[in-house]
Design a protein around this nucleic acid. Structure first.
Length: 415
DNA sequence: TCTGGGGTCCTAGGACCC
DNA sequence: TCTGGGGTCCTAGGACCC
């Protein structure tokens, strides 16, 4: 194996919690959780008690009575996340950002400037610590998959370089759940076959994996287990869908409940789609019932849409259809809308005539024109005065926002 | 014991076309 | 009329990731 390890995976440690401990030194060394009703992030001190992101706040308190809850400084997360990625970008333009706090990079082309990959990795960690005050773990390997695993193993605040000579030795000792694509279900299925480590997975016959996990997953996992990962660094990939959801507690499955919520969700999505001129053709809704079972309904249109009200109406039709098929479910706990089949770049003015082919939904061009103009007006006001300055139902919904909008924005992918 | 929100990809069946 | 095969799109559900 002549090639060298030039792929880096960098991952800020317990990111939100680390930022809070940075901003308020009295929190350092203590178990803290960002959030309230739901734990959005936990510090390492809290993780030691079993506190995890996504956990209910009450449950977290039971696990760790001295847990300190802090409200989030979402602006700071965005700023510091961007700054950390920018440090990596100072070494190479080949940076693939995965999320607010995580990125891959290929440094093959810049070693003549900055030294070997391990020196670059050390420099990145040093600079992020010195300039931003944050711990960041880095894995260096020949493939993305291995670099990612290396950074996980290196955590917290560590650096791990996987020499190409010992790749499989390193990989095959590790448990299967460290692999990309192995979650709780796959882990359990593999465990039933007695497969606990990546080494055992590698020795499992291909046909057996494919029967268990399907052709695609089986083949992918086998390839990763032998470190045959061909994925390259993708500097920018466009989003394939945009969505929004809202957990609403337990509410009756009735029009007066889901209509305003759907309008609010459609408003969020529509304004994002319009801002980037990326309307979509497929609208999907998800309804989760009180028992946490959920169903989806979708509809693909002939022409792409991004108008808030049209989006909301289609979503309403789909939700009504879903509820009609589940007459026994009287209570819903979550509503979601997602738009996919996004156009690459679209002249939104075209949406008007094309979007009105369905006469039942939008009888007459005048109404369609009015809606389109209303969206334009709302978008403009928001550009100047902020999102909450105007909109559909955001006031009436105020109390039902379980998570602040700023937090939602952190998770939004660039369209 | 009852977890939020934004995403990606895969599967399987059916419709439809050639 | 019956039979077959391949390709594409749509829909619903599910696993997984951050």
């Amino acid at each position: 194996m002549a090639t060298t390890a030039t792929i880096l995976h960098a991952d800020l440690d317990a990111f939100y919690a680390s930022v809070e401990q940075l901003l308020d030194p009295s929190l350092r060394g203590k178990p803290i959780a960002v959030g309230g009703g739901v734990v959005l992030a936990a510090s390492y001190e809290a993780k030691a008690f079993g506190v995890r992101g996504g956990m209910a706040g009450r449950q977290a308190c039971e696990l760790c009575p001295q847990l300190i809850f802090v409200g989030g400084h979402f602006r700071e997360y965005q700023r510091l996340g961007d700054a950390a990625i920018k440090v990596i970008g100072d070494f190479t333009p080949l940076v693939e950002r995965i999320s607010i706090d995580e990125a891959f990079a290929d440094v093959a082309g810049c070693t003549h400037l900055f030294g070997p990959p391990d020196e670059i990795a050390k420099a990145i960690r040093r600079r992020v610590r010195a300039e931003l005050g944050l711990p960041i773990s880095v894995g260096v390997a020949r493939t993305k998959h291995l670099a990612k695993i290396a950074s996980q193993v290196a955590k917290p605040d560590g650096l791990l370089i996987v020499d190409p000579e010992i790749e499989l030795e390193f990989l095959h000792r590790l448990p299967v759940e460290l692999m990309w694509g192995v979650g709780p279900v796959t882990k359990a299925r593999l465990a039933e076959m007695g497969v606990l480590t990546i080494g055992q997975l590698a020795k499992t016959p291909g046909w057996s994996l494919e029967r268990l996990l399907g052709p695609a997953a089986g083949e992918k996992l086998a390839a990763l287990a032998w470190n045959r990962d061909r994925r390259e660094i993708k500097v920018r990939r466009r989003a394939r869908s945009a969505g929004a959801q809202s957990a609403i507690g337990r509410k009756p499955a009735e029009e007066h409940v889901f209509r305003p919520t759907l309008l609010h969700l459609a408003d969020r999505i529509g304004s994002r789609l319009r801002a980037k001129s990326r309307p979509g053709r497929t609208v999907t809704v998800r309804v989760r019932f009180a028992n946490l079972k959920s169903v989806t309904r979708s509809m693909t249109l002939d022409a792409p849409i991004s108008a808030t009200v049209i989006l909301a109406e289609i979503a309403g039709d789909l939700v009504r259809a879903a509820l009609a098929e589940h007459p026994d479910e009287k209570t819903i706990s979550l509503l979601a809308i997602s738009v996919s089949h996004l156009e690459e770049h679209w002249d939104l003015e075209l949406e008007l005539p094309l979007g009105l082919q369905d006469e039942r939904r939008c009888p007459g061009t005048k109404i369609g024109m009015a809606r389109w103009a209303a969206d334009r007006a709302v978008d403009k006001i928001r550009d100047r005065f902020g999102w909450d300055a105007i909109g559909y139902g955001s006031v009436t919904l105020g109390t039902s926002r379980s998570v602040p909008d700023e937090f939602r924005e952190l998770a939004e992918k660039d369209l």
